[in-house]
Amino acid sequence: MLELREIIFWIFSFGLICSALLVVTTRRPVWSVLALVSAFVCAAALWVMQGAEFLGLALIFIYVGAVMTLFLFVVMMLNQESLTAERLRRYALPFALGLAGFLLFLLWHHAWPVSVAASLPESRFTGTNTQALGRMLYGSYVFEFELAAFILLVGMISAIGLTFRGKRAGNKAVPVEAQLNVSSKDRLSVATFKDAS
């Protein structure tokens, strides 16, 4: 009889593969994004099973909770009929097949045959998982980590630079600061009338 742990492993691996396939095969973009979400969740579950609970939960928190939501946001606002798959298929298919072949080759070369039990090498760090990850990121990989952060910052600034065109003329948005700084004196003045008689 299979161990409970193993059953859970197979469920999530099967789910991961199925949802990954669904991402590329479905023709409806929203479904594709949702399948990707499900793939992330399955992958996170697999990571948690291997003892990397911080990483797994961070994957859900950051990718599923924030990044994929923004993806979904964009996809939901798209006009779905306008997506033509024809050109995509002509160029993307050979590329995807080639990439898949390359990855399979790598897998075969390095890691085949895969065993479920011994999938993670013995940890070099003591302490909890989170501490180990922290030492790794801010110790041996600090340069790469900071570089990645810097690239993200550049990306963010350039995105803002591309889209922000300054304040447009005729913009009727109320600046909140001005609104908050209003006092009763600015809105109301007491008029005094001289006696008419």
């Binding site: 979400v37 609970e53 961070a58 859900i60 928190f61 599923v64 939501t69 979904l72």
Partner: peptide, 25 residues
């Protein structure tokens, strides 16, 4: 009693967005 309890709560809270987003769409 998992080690990353706070992170678990935060990540589950972030999953709640999907229900709302999908319901709306």
């Amino acid at each position: 009693n998992i080690d990353a309890g706070v992170l678990f709560i935060l990540s589950m809270a972030s999953l709640g967005v999907y229900g709302i987003l999908l319901a709306g769409w």
